[in-house]
Every structure is written in C-alpha cells, then in structure tokens.
Design a binder for these strands. Structure first.
Length: 307
DNA sequence: GAAGTGGAACTCATTGCACA
DNA sequence: TGTGCAATGAGTTCCACTTC
C-alpha cells in the first residue's frame, strides 16, 4: 500500500508551499515534474489531494490530513536518519519564554522533551521584551497576550488567577476568610502582569481593595517567592502555582479563581517555518499544555482558612 | 561483463485558463 | 492582450534487472 516515495516527497513540498512552481524550485526540477508526481500520487490513492484553482492550488480536506500525517512521518524519518548517520550534529532549538513560565512550567517538563529528542539541544532564554524573530535565531517564543499575533500562534491553556500566600499568613494576624479580608493584607504585584489584581477584584465583584498598594516585583516568580516567605499575598496564575499549593508551600485562602483573558501562546518564527526541530517542539508543547488544561479542570488544591 | 529491456522520472514545448 | 499559473503530449535519460 506504499505509494511511490518520490511522489510522497513531492507532495509534502508542494503542500508546504501550496504551489507546484515553488515546490519545483525547492526540489530542483521543473514545474511539470511536480505536476506529474502529484498526479501519480493522486492516481495511486484514487483521491484528489489538491484542488486546482486559478493560479493556485489548495489542499482538499483529504490532502490536508495526509499532509499532517506525512509531515510527522518525514520528521520521524529525519530523526532516524540523523541517529543512524553518526554525524553527531546535534541540532539547536532556541526558545524564549518568561522567567516565571520557564522556571515553573517549562523547565520541569523539559526532561520529557529531551528524552524523546536526544539529538536536540534546547537553548532557553528569558525576556519580557516582545520577541524579534526577524533579527534573531529564536525558533519559537512563549508570550502572553490576547490572541492577536502576526505569527503562527498556538494558545497553550487558559489562565486562572487566584490569591496565594504562605499558610501562616492565611491565619495571622487577620485570618483571610473571604476576599474582602484582603484589606488587611499587603498585596504583591508583578510588573509582568500589572492588571491581575484589578482583574481578580473585578472577577469576584469587589472594589479594588488596595490594588495599587504593596510590593512590586519584576517577575511573578519573585512575587510567589515573597508570598512563600510571608511578605504578603500574591496573585497567582493557577497552573504556575499548582505545585506549591499541593506541597503546602502556598495556600489559596479563597476558592475564587478568576479566568484571565490574558494567557500564554506559543509563537513560531516564520524564518523557521516547517523546520522539523520547531515542529517537534511545538507538538510536544501543545501535548503538555493539553495535560495542564485538563488538570485545571480539577478542583483547586487549597487549605481552608480557619474560621 | 556486455547488451537488451522496461519503467520511472525527467525536460521541452505547448495548451488552457482566468485575471488585470 | 499579456501574464502567470497548472496540465499535457512527446520524447529523452537513467538505472535496475535480466539474459546470454
């Protein structure tokens, strides 16, 4: 049932470019050769893979599915070949993320990616600045936003924000029994997500009780660390503090997680469009994000504040 | 090893089509 | 009418395989 491999390769390139002419350029053959190879494959499969339009070709639904499957298979083939040929040219994958996201979510999962892809070396950098794909070798970046990006962007998971503090602070000196008790607390802010407290108060239907007061930190992870040490109450992103909540390093005094419109996206650099190293990482990342999204549907791990 | 054979894959030249 | 795209007919090249 295996189709001609030359035709498969031609199809993969043509589907990527959505142009027989551009595919011909990449494969160093004529447009005619590409057209014939596509026809050979379609005849073999007895399925139309492309819809021929004026000055363009577009994939049919079958073609789209086939392309997706083939891309993964070619990536697998590429990995297998690289392993076999002892070239030891380990590929480098440059990823940019926020410090908090990297430390609390990405790095703890990165070993799984490395185990699956031992030939790829990950270079991870942190920055609060907008990613500059045009003038850097960054393959992909995790950025926060509302979904409007000039690049291919994959939404990773929903973000829920919830106040967190150290267990002792939830009890002393003024027990945090309900959100309005925060009037007695020192609020901890992150420059990276300045509107989280305001959004949370709005979400629970309260005026902003001292939302402008308290300590400010460059990153959310600094605020979480300060919260652990009893400096005040931080506004946590649930999936980034979940581990601390389970271990009891932090507690969520109120069962009041609020959905935040601002969430995380994985942006792919157009410079590396179709690069196997990028596609492998993206697929893995989306898989991990799916696991996180499922976990967030479970009840919030919290210790009830004393009454 | 040389010659013959068949098929895959290619090129060239051309056609058809639709848009500006 | 020119342009830019895909499709197609005819012929060529290359290579694996078979036969002697």
């Amino acid at each position: 049932m295996l189709p001609p491999l030359t035709a498969l390769r031609t199809f993969e390139v043509a589907a990527r470019h959505l142009s027989f002419t551009k595919a011909a350029e990449e494969l160093c053959v004529t447009q005619s050769a590409v057209s014939r190879q596509i026809r050979v494959l379609e005849d073999f499969l007895e399925i139309r893979l492309f819809e021929r339009r004026h000055r363009a070709v577009v994939l049919t639904a079958d073609g789209e599915h086939y392309k997706r499957d083939l891309s993964q298979l070619f990536a697998q083939l590429d990995r297998a070949t690289r392993r076999l040929s002892r070239r030891q040219t380990r590929e480098i994958l440059n990823i940019q993320a926020y410090t908090t996201f990297a430390m609390r979510w990405l790095i703890p999962r990165l070993k799984r990616f490395q185990d699956q892809n031992p030939d790829i070396r990950v270079h991870l950098t942190a920055s609060l600045q907008p990613v500059d794909f045009a003038n850097s070798d960054i393959h992909g970046a995790v950025r926060g936003g509302y979904g409007e990006w000039p690049y291919r962007a994959d939404r990773l998971c929903d973000t829920y924000i919830v106040p967190v503090c150290c267990p002792s602070l939830a009890e002393q000196p003024w027990p945090l029994r309900e959100p309005r008790d925060l009037v007695h607390a020192t609020l901890l802010h992150s420059f990276g997500r300045p509107s989280d407290w305001s959004d949370w108060f709005r979400g629970v239907g309260l005026p902003e009780i001292g939302a402008e007061q308290g300590h400010r930190f460059e990153s959310s992870s600094m605020a979480y660390q300060a919260a652990q040490l009893g400096l005040g109450v931080a506004i946590g992103q649930r999936f980034l503090v979940e581990d601390d909540l389970r271990k009891g390093k932090l507690v969520a005094p109120f069962d009041a997680a609020v959905h935040s419109e601002e969430t995380y996206y994985f942006l792919s650099s157009p410079r590396f469009a179709g690069a196997p190293v990028l596609e492998l990482f993206r697929e893995w990342l989306l898989q991990e994000a799916g696991i996180t999204a499922a976990a967030q549907r479970q009840p919030l791990p919290r210790r009830a504040a004393p009454r």
